[in-house]
Nucleic acid binder design. Structure first.
Lengths: 168, 168
DNA sequence: TTAAACTTTCAAAACTTATTGAAAGTTTAT
DNA sequence: ATAAACTTTCAATAAGTTTTGAAAGTTTAA
């Protein structure tokens, strides 16, 4: 396969994966573009490469910075802003895990612990079923949270060797 | 908190979480409703509880069956179909992991391994950067895949005790 | 200053996805 | 066979999300 075709395919696949996981397609595509680009790119170049508008490019770049996935770079003697992506895939995974944990898992944990406090008649099947489901989900969510916490602190090789030891 | 209020809150939270993770909100809500219901419910009851149309209820229930999260139940002497959810949270987690692995991770792995075969000039920074990113993502995805594979086969308590040993 | 270079904003439009509801289809009991 | 009970389909519509692009805002150099 040609490099140019491969790049397009990668950008498309990354965009599709993103949208299946609740991440805006364009955002995933811009990220993909920067991931495979050896140099930092300008807004103009990104607009051009992906055929997107200035407004869209600007907002998407802002969001990606918010996710900690890309950074601005200034080149001496130039006014333009350049953008580049962290190329360390383990950092990327951690960054995404960190943000989703904060934005989604933590609010859910909070609600679950609130819901765990519901009181009622232990003889009522409605109450018993509710309580059991909520408690079970709560326990699972706490384990997921702990695992993510470990991942956030860990070096890649150590993390995977630990997790994959499970196969031994 | 009252049981009735807690139920509503649970359904709402589950729906929101679902939509953040690329799962249709209504589908997540119907699942939540069945999860906390001690008895199987009819389409009618589900429509009523969540104020959704018959068509929507029917399609959503079908999708949930497709995901292996709920089942139809027939009651002796009744024509109506009843639906109930598997209440084992570990089974649910495995089922979701299994489906998403199949629907999303596997296609991506396939593309990544194709993209790994791109050939080019090792001196070209464009080529080097592309290759490195694709290879690194590929390795990470393979580890994720292996971990999910283990999870799919594992008992809950064994899986988490293995994974959480990482803390020792 | 001024104006060119560049960035940000946001209302309107385009696109995507979810939902409705009525009609068609199916099954069962009589 | 018929009709009642129930389920499924799908075209139309609504709701939600993303994108555009022109105008407003900002920064820099001269």
């Amino acid at each position: 396969m040609e490099l140019a075709a491969a790049k397009l395919k990668f950008i498309e696949a990354w965009g599709k994966l993103g949208s299946e996981w609740g991440i805006n397609r364009t955002m995933a595509q811009v990220h993909a573009l920067l991931l495979i680009s050896p140099d930092a790119l300008t807004t103009e170049e990104i607009m051009e490469s992906l055929s997107i508008s200035r407004g869209n490019a600007n907002m998407t770049l802002r969001d990606l910075i918010g996710w900690g996935l890309i950074e601005k770079q200034h080149k001496a003697g130039e006014r333009k802003e350049y953008f580049f992506a962290d190329k360390d895939v383990w950092n990327i995974a951690r960054q995404v895990a960190k943000e989703r944990k904060k934005r989604e898992l933590e609010p859910v944990l909070k609600i679950l612990s609130e819901l765990s406090t519901v009181t009622g008649d232990e003889k009522d099947p409605e109450f018993k079923t509710f309580k059991k489901s909520v408690n079970d989900i709560n326990k699972l969510a706490i384990n997921v949270d702990k695992t993510l916490e470990t991942m956030l602190k860990a070096e890649e090789s150590w993390f995977w060797s630990s997790v994959l030891k499970v196969f031994k």
